[in-house]
Amino acid sequence: MTLKDLGFNKSAQKLISLEREGMKVGRVIVEHKERYLIQTPENIYQAEITGKLRYSAESRADLPAVGDWVTFSVFDDNAAIIIEVMPRYSTLERQAVNKFGEKQIIATNVDIAFIMQAVDHDFNLNRLERYIAICKSSYIRPVIILSKTDLIGQEKVTAIIESIHKRISNVSVYPISNETYTGYEELKETITAGNTYCILGSSGVGKSSLANNLLNVPKLKVNAISNSTSKGKHTTTHRELMILPEGGVLIDTPGMRELGIAGDSDSIDRTFDQISILARNCKFKDCTHTEEPDCAVLEALESGGLDQSTYENYHKLKREQAHFSSTVAERRAKDKKLGKLYKRIKEEKDKRR
C-alpha cells in the first residue's frame, strides 16, 4: 500500500507536508466518540487526541474527522496519540442537528460525492439540489446515483433522469441496481486512484450495498426498508473510510434525514446556475428576484422559462442559509462578549491577590 492508495493526491500535496520530525503521518479512517483508527501504508493504529488539541479546539470542527490527514506518535504496538490535524482541502459539512448555528463535519478531503437516491420511494429533486449546494460549498464535485432501478421500468428511469437534467445541469447521473449490478461498469469507470469519494443519501437507499459492491466484499451491514413507513433503517452508524480494489478511497456515511445548509450564499448560486445566468440580465446587481422591476428571473418564471419548484427551492435554501449565517454571527458576538467578561473577572481576581 502507498500514500496514493490512501488518497494522497495533488490536492492534498499542495497543503500537506509529510516532513514531521519524529512523527508519523496517517489518515483517519474511523471516528467514534473521540476515538479514532488511523491508517498508514504500513499499519492501522488506535488513537486518541492530546489534551492540548482538545482544549485548544474552538469547535468540534477543529478535532479530527474521517478523511483527515494527521500527525501522531506511537506509544505502543498499535496505540497512538494524535498531535495535529493537517490542513483540509475540502470539508463536507452540514448544519448540526438540533444545534442551529453549529456545523457538523460529514467528511474531509473529499474530491467527489456520490449523492444517492432510490427511484422507488426516495427520489426528490429539491433534496438533490440541497445535497448539491452542500457539495459546492466545499468545491466537491457531485455525482448523482439513482438506485433500485430494477424496481421500475426503463421508461420511468429515463423520465426521472430527464427531470434531473431539466433542473440540474453539469452533474453526471448514473442509474444502477444493487441487485442486478446494472450500471456498475459505467460507474466504476469514473473511479480513479488517489481520489476520495463519499456516499451521501438517506437511510435505505442502498448506500451500504453500493459500498459492498464497489469493495467486492460484504463488509457493511445491510437492512431492508421498513414496509410500514417506506423509510430506511439505519445500517451505517458511523463514518468509515475504505480503500477500493480498483483504486480510490470511499467514505460511507450514516443516513441523513435532516440536511441543513451550512455553506455560503455563493454555493447556492452555483447550484442554481440557471437562475445565476438569468440574474446577469436583471436591472439591479443586488436583485433578490422577488419583487424588483425588470427582474430577468421573475420574467423567466412568468413566461415558463424557469420551473416554479426550482425558483421556490432556491429561495428556501437562500433563507435558510441567511438565517444560519446570522445565527453564527450572533454566537460569535456572544462568545466574544463572554470572553471579555471572563478576562475582566480574571484581572479583578489577580488585583485582589
Rank of each mutant, 00 (worst) to 15 (best):
W69I: 15
V70S: 08
L53D: 03
M86Y: 11
L53C: 12
E21P: 08
K103R: 01
S73V: 00
L37K: 02
R94L: 15
E93F: 07
A61F: 03
K33R: 12
Y55L: 13
L37A: 03
F75C: 03
E102D: 14
I83P: 07
R20I: 08
I105Q: 05
V70Y: 13
R60P: 07
Y36M: 00
W69R: 08
Q39A: 15
V110K: 01
V97T: 05
I29Y: 06
A47Q: 04
I29T: 12
R88V: 07
K103V: 06
P87N: 09
F72A: 12
L92W: 00
T108K: 02
D77C: 08
V25K: 05
I38A: 11
T91H: 10
V66F: 15
A80H: 13
Y55M: 11
A65D: 13
Y55D: 13
I44M: 11
L63W: 01
I44G: 05
L92H: 07
E58K: 13
F75V: 02
E21H: 04
G22P: 05
R54C: 06
Q95G: 15
A79G: 03
I112G: 00
H32F: 09
E48V: 02
E21W: 00
R60L: 01
E48Y: 13
N109K: 06
Y36F: 09
V30Q: 00
A107Y: 01
L53T: 07
D77V: 11
S73G: 13
A61S: 14
K103W: 00
M23H: 12
W69K: 10
V97F: 07
S59F: 14
Y55E: 10
E34I: 09
I29S: 14
K52I: 00
E31K: 01
V28Y: 12
V25Y: 07
A61P: 11
V66E: 04
F100V: 10
N109Q: 15
P87K: 13
I38R: 10
Q95H: 13
G67P: 14
S59G: 10
G101Q: 15
K103E: 02
K99R: 15
T40M: 03
R60G: 10
K52H: 09
V25C: 06
P87H: 09
V74K: 05
A96L: 02
V110Y: 00
F72M: 14
R88S: 10
N43Y: 15
V66H: 12
A65T: 10
Y55F: 07
D77I: 09
T40K: 02
A65V: 07
K24M: 09
T40V: 03
E102Y: 12
V74A: 12
E93L: 14
I49W: 05
E58P: 10
I82K: 01
Y45Q: 01
R35F: 10
F72R: 03
P87A: 04
A96H: 14
Q104E: 03
S90D: 04
D111R: 02
I82H: 03
T50R: 14
N43P: 13
R94G: 10
A47R: 02
V97Y: 04
R94V: 06
R54E: 11
S56E: 02
A57F: 08
I81V: 15
R35S: 01
I29L: 06
Y36N: 01
H32A: 01
R94K: 09
V70F: 15
N78R: 09
E42P: 09
I29C: 12
K33G: 03
G51V: 05
S73I: 00
Y89D: 08
A107T: 10
Q46M: 12
R88M: 07
R35V: 03
D62S: 07
